[in-house]
Design a protein around this nucleic acid. Structure first.
Lengths: 230, 230
DNA sequence: CTGCAAGTAGAATGATCAATCAAATGGAGG
DNA sequence: CCTCCATTTGATTGATCATTCTACTTGCAG
């Protein structure tokens, strides 16, 4: 028993929901993929919707160790962590030729308000995501303006990610994603500039207005599982 | 024949896809809603997917007259038009208790890369949306920095809308949407401030850093159909 | 070795799915 | 009045849907 049956079912369900969506994925397909009979599945889950709940719980459990953690460890610069995080989503987008987006985002729009349990799991995911970004913004301290609405900015970062991914999928190109992120970067620079002025420091050289363009760094060698499965 | 059968089918399909999604909507449900028999539907559409294409074409046709046009007419200020547009989405969100988002955004994530025809229609919608916002940014002329990537900023605006709507649905609250928009507004103010500096004009009073908070204006009396159906 | 429960096997269930088709309808043109 | 064709009717198709059920296996506790 290397992997429990329940976990294997959840893993395959997660993969298939991500690829084809919840409604488009038949229970029979999940059974085939997991190499399991219906009796086993219904032994662990009362129905298909419980499977959805399980998948969302899995995403929630993986959020910190597989998504946010690596971005946090990638750099000590709290502001730069945000862009490390966005880079990871960019890489996932690239690896899949812009065919798949954020698995939770997909489910949010497809089955987001089916039941309150599903909705609150999705909300928990987004809130946890934004809360961590908020923490990073707090860690940036005086580099950012004192009066800045940091939870609000964290929500904007998430909007940029989800909105950028959606557009990239539609366009079949990373361009809209990169453009959105570049604008966010520009905004952050202006915020830092504003904070510098607040502190009475000399303002930066001059025009730091970005045109566009992704800054491709080397991909971190071994990223943890959540990204791999994409 | 007040309304053609084909149009009625498309209208109901559009409404149902928006409410329940594409896969979750059975053809039989559409038939019942439109008061039509299956033979009629299949007389006009070769299959369910053609219905999806028709629905997307309908959204594309409505984009300008029902979504972008009203925002453009609401104010002569090109920058303010952007926020009028976002306000309209906010209103739609509010009217539906944050249960429904952008119909095209929903379909983008659910069936976005099923066929290339579907994908290019969705891309056409997003591109048209962003192109119009880009035009507004051009109209803002020297109010914005010369080197600003205006198409990129337009993409950011769309990301803010779609990402904000997604989070609002998950949270069951307008807060994440409002927060994202408020940050965008702040960004735009910083851009205008930067442009003023470029022109050698005196900088504004001081701290214009927003905390949060939606600025509720009166709702335009009669908005055109696309919003109504939501 | 026994007994019991957890887990698995897999055929069978009825419901619902998208789609088909032959027959009926109705209006416009001749 | 007749013809013709677009449109509509609605029963019917077979496939697939999620789920259930009984029987079988397995591992472990006593």
């Amino acid at each position: 028993m290397t992997t429990g049956t329940r976990d294997r079912i959840l893993e395959e369900a997660s993969r298939l929901f991500h690829r084809h969506g919840y409604e488009a994925t038949g229970v029979a397909t999940i059974l085939r993929a997991a190499g399991v009979n219906s009796g086993s599945l219904y032994h662990f889950f009362p129905g298909k919707e419980a499977l959805l709940v399980g998948v969302l719980e899995r995403h929630l459990n993986l959020l910190d160790p597989a998504i946010l953690g690596p971005a946090e460890e990638a750099t000590g610069d709290p502001v730069e962590r945000i862009f490390k995080l966005l880079e990871a989503y960019r890489r996932a987008l690239m690896v899949t030729d812009c065919t798949r987006g954020c698995p939770v985002g997909n489910l949010a729009l497809e089955v987001g308000n089916r039941t309150s349990e599903v909705q609150s799991l999705i909300d928990g995911y987004f809130s946890g995501w934004a809360r961590r970004v908020h923490r990073w913004l707090d860690q940036a301290g005086a580099r950012l303006p004192a009066a800045l609405d940091r939870p609000g900015l964290a929500r904007l970062v998430l909007s940029v990610m989800e909105g950028g991914v959606m557009q990239a999928r539609a366009a079949g190109s990373l361009e809209p994603f990169d453009a959105s992120v570049a604008q966010l970067r520009h905004y952050m620079e202006l915020l830092e500039e504003t904070a510098r002025r607040e502190r009475g420091e000399p303002s930066m050289p001059a025009g730091a207005v970005h045109e566009a363009g992704p800054e491709n760094e080397e991909a971190p060698a071994g990223e943890r599982s959540a990204w791999r499965a994409w």
